[in-house]
Nucleic acid binder design. Structure first.
Lengths: 212, 212
DNA sequence: CACTTTCTGGGTTGTTCTGTCCAGAAAACG
DNA sequence: CGTTTTCTGGACAGAACAACCCAGAAAGTG
């Protein structure tokens, strides 16, 4: 193993090219899946040429992992409007609505969610699985922190199992998205988000709020 | 197109071989994913040889579709103990527990759920996506019928949105399984199933039952 | 303005995998 | 018991694709 291509700092131009490659790869993977996306396709789409991919990435796997990391970093995918805090019922609802709306907009055609990637890679490639798992756990913590804040503000009852709620919400999001992409209808995603949010709200101290 | 390999009825032996191939493919795909499973691997695992696969299946895609159909038919995968009716809180809980237990048993390593297949194929292959969608919708109907029976027996309140509950439960199952397989821990699956079942139970007419 | 590092372009190789062909064995059928 | 369909086996062609190499341009550094 040749020391994994020493990642000496890139010049600005190089950094830009590298980003362009990752973006192109992300877009293609969103449409055609990981297995359906060839290095050559990425190369053409990014407008770079030849061995550039291998200049910046040691292998296809490395590129995929970069895509995963990027997606995991764009916190809680539904939206470039970066979620900073999911610490109120309104924020949760807004996040859910954004996810639903986003799905509706691209006709339920698969985005490049961690979920989609997980389905394809978890069983195949151990390193990617680890990256994906870390991404998911970070998202879960994001939700969890929001819920904790709500409990500290006494908006949520003390007996609520916040870990369970956080995982349930994340699962609902992933599962709903997966089903929607398969059935080509937002209904499953709407249903799972509505149900899980309603369940979370059932732990509210103030029950006067409409469940919607 | 040569009329899609006229499916003149198979002899018993041929049928057995065909099944063996599908089983081998299912097992391999469960471990290594669709893209990671070559025709040659299936051939070897099934103990048949040469062009047999193409005698029984027109293409790799056709084989995959056969696997999908098979999985969709083994109703609500958690278990060979075929679910006949999910028409009581106990039955739902038992089904959920079976799913969780099953996941725990294979160390959360991906089975060959429709969900896993959907993640890999929905975006890539339109025909497979249709098969998968049909499978999911049949499962949803299975759940829905159970819930309807419960409502008719007045175990569920009339104002419960059964479609929403059915989709939510299915999404929770798929999402929870996906997360569990990625994180290699049953916690997400347990959380999402618990939460969704509790939510369904909140529509029970008889609230004396423990939520567990 | 020399000199070094970083970036670009295209061509190429070797492997892996799907899908095909042909000839021989086994079973079904009269 | 002979003939026809059905099944089996291995070998092979053709394409796709990941990965590597080399030479030249551009950018950065003294």
């Amino acid at each position: 193993m040749p020391e994994a291509t020493k990642p000496r700092r890139l010049t600005p131009k190089g950094q830009a090219t590298k980003n362009r490659i990752i973006e192109a790869a992300t877009a293609l993977i969103a449409q055609r899946g990981v297995a359906g996306t060839g290095i050559e396709d990425v190369r053409a789409a990014a407008g770079v040429s030849g061995s550039q991919l291998y200049h910046y990435f040691a292998s296809k796997q490395a590129l995929i992992r970069a895509v995963i990391t990027r997606q995991a970093d764009s916190a809680l995918d539904p939206g470039l409007p970066r979620i900073t805090a999911l610490d109120s019922f309104e924020a949760l609802r807004a996040w859910a609505d954004a996810a639903i709306e986003r799905q509706r907009e691209n006709g339920c055609r698969g985005g490049c969610d961690l979920g989609t990637l997980a389905g394809e890679l978890s069983g195949t490639d151990e390193e990617s699985r680890t990256d994906l798992a870390n991404g998911f756990l970070r998202w879960k913590d994001l939700i969890l922190n929001g819920l904790r804040a709500m409990r500290e503000r006494d908006e949520l009852r003390a007996d609520a199992d916040l870990d369970e709620l956080a995982f349930a919400l994340l699962s609902a999001h992933q599962g709903g998205t997966l089903l929607s992409q398969t059935v080509l209808d937002v209904q499953p995603l709407e249903a799972s988000m509505n149900a899980t949010l309603a369940y979370i709200r059932s732990f509210a101290t103030d029950q006067r709020q409409p469940v919607r």
